[in-house]
Simulated assay, not measured.
Amino acid sequence: MKLAIIGASPGQYYLCRKAREMGVETLCFAWEKGAVCRDLVDKFYPISITEEDEILRICRQERIDGVVSNASDKTSELVAFIAEEMHLHGTRRSVIRATRDKTFTREISQHIEGLTPIRYYDYEGGTPGFFPCVIKPVPGAGKRGVSFVDSEKEFREAIRYAEAEPHRAILVEEYIRGREVSVETISYEGQHHVIQITDKETTGAPHFLELAHHQPSTVPPEIHDTICRVIPRLLSAVGFENGAAHTELKIDGKNIYLIEINARGGGDEISNRLVELSTGYDYVRGMIEVALGIFKAPATEGKRYSGVYYLCEQTAGRIPFFKSATGKPWLVEMTMDFDTPTLSSATKNRERNGFMVYQSDHKIEEGD
């Protein structure tokens, strides 16, 4: 079988490696600069992913059987375009675009049984209608352009911060207190499978930078069960059909609020590493099987724990924890150069300095 992979950044590395393990012939389309996946694929085309028609022409010429990418909003739309044009297993491009529109998904969520509505409106000038609130670009991910606001001065500053992003449409929504989780799913022909729920650690206000993720979530069993019922309804309501999705929620008591839907696997090592480490289900392989139309319903093994910790200026206190992790049986990977200890004061996920991935029979915390 023949698979097109869109993008060659680190986010696609595990897809390329897994396809090779599966004996699948691969074509990869990406800029040559920074293409870490180049040597993992059978054919590499140094073409910008903005060259949609040329990539489609090559895919047709090569008679591909599927097309896939992961953990990237930029590539997911092109994947949808090629799949739709070639009648392959994918989700329609219009749906991918709709899930990136936070106003649209917010409206859909108001009518899903099990989700609690949130007050919101599209910003068109003026002062906020309520405090506290969160300002965010309507499309966007990775916490880019997101701010917490509790005064008119903060509101003006947050609007300027959001307007600096490429997309200028801005959403103002009620600030919800509580814990944040994400839901990792895989869908095939409109059937949705909840694979794992992830606990998130963030800086909180004002920019909600993500500092760690842990699986499985420690939400109460009744909340877990409600999430597993609600998310398939939500994905069906927006028209999502095929592939991985990463849906972010806030939990406050018994109330479950939608934050956003991402029509892709979760970044921050969640989809590429943590899901398989905690469940035993080969999530990346599942994405490839969906794309190729050979998907089988997933089975998970006994409960294990996995997670990722990030370093930046806000988590400088974790440096001793990182250093002491070397040689521990639970350490899967660490990427941090301690000889250059300067840490970034990050406001976006992409600005963090290094990370550490673990797997264990319990949640790993400082002191383990």
Results as ranks from 00 to 15, higher is better:
324 S>R: 13
363 K>E: 15
64 I>D: 11
129 G>F: 06
72 S>Q: 03
71 A>C: 15
226 T>S: 14
23 G>N: 05
337 D>A: 12
119 R>K: 15
203 T>M: 12
346 A>E: 06
339 D>T: 13
67 V>R: 00
277 L>W: 04
131 F>G: 09
115 L>D: 00
247 T>F: 11
121 Y>C: 10
172 V>Y: 05
282 D>F: 10
74 K>T: 10
149 V>T: 06
25 E>F: 13
47 I>C: 07
187 S>V: 04
257 Y>W: 02
15 L>V: 06
10 P>F: 00
24 V>G: 12
246 H>F: 09
305 Y>S: 08
156 R>G: 12
190 G>H: 03
50 T>I: 09
102 K>S: 08
262 N>H: 14
131 F>Y: 15
219 V>W: 01
4 A>H: 07
120 Y>S: 14
328 K>D: 07
238 V>T: 04
178 G>M: 06
336 M>Q: 15
90 G>S: 04
106 R>F: 09
72 S>V: 03
53 D>G: 10
32 E>H: 08
97 R>L: 15
363 K>L: 15
240 F>I: 05
80 A>H: 03
199 D>I: 04
106 R>V: 07
45 Y>P: 04
7 G>A: 03
159 I>G: 09
61 Q>C: 12
300 T>M: 14
95 V>S: 04
105 T>K: 02
62 E>P: 08
168 R>E: 09
146 V>G: 07
101 D>G: 08
94 S>A: 13
190 G>L: 06
163 E>N: 07
240 F>P: 10
56 L>Y: 05
53 D>W: 01
163 E>K: 08
95 V>A: 05
289 E>W: 01
332 V>P: 14
319 I>H: 08
191 Q>R: 15
107 E>H: 08
255 N>H: 13
98 A>P: 14
141 A>E: 14
183 V>P: 14
329 P>K: 00
267 G>N: 09
223 I>C: 08
166 P>S: 02
231 I>S: 02
6 I>P: 14
311 L>E: 07
360 S>P: 08
260 E>D: 05
249 L>W: 03
347 T>I: 10
81 F>E: 10
8 A>T: 00
266 G>I: 07
199 D>A: 10
6 I>S: 05
114 G>W: 00
123 Y>V: 07
258 L>T: 02
138 V>S: 08
340 T>P: 06
170 I>W: 00
71 A>V: 11
136 K>W: 03
188 Y>C: 10
85 E>R: 15
105 T>Y: 07
367 G>H: 03
60 R>D: 12
113 E>D: 13
320 P>M: 01
25 E>R: 10
366 E>P: 15
93 R>I: 07
215 Q>Y: 04
358 Y>D: 11
291 A>Q: 03
103 T>Q: 09
189 E>K: 14
169 A>Y: 01
10 P>Y: 01
186 I>E: 09
133 C>Q: 04
139 P>Y: 00
117 P>G: 00
41 V>D: 03
258 L>N: 06
110 Q>A: 13
35 A>S: 06
171 L>C: 07
74 K>V: 13
61 Q>V: 03
82 I>T: 05
197 I>V: 09
150 D>W: 06
241 E>I: 08
27 L>R: 00
25 E>I: 11
278 S>V: 03
88 L>S: 05
352 R>A: 11
165 E>T: 15
153 K>C: 14
149 V>N: 05
258 L>M: 02
282 D>K: 04
219 V>Q: 01
96 I>M: 09
148 F>E: 04
61 Q>I: 03
364 I>T: 09
119 R>D: 14
278 S>P: 12
227 I>E: 01
153 K>D: 15
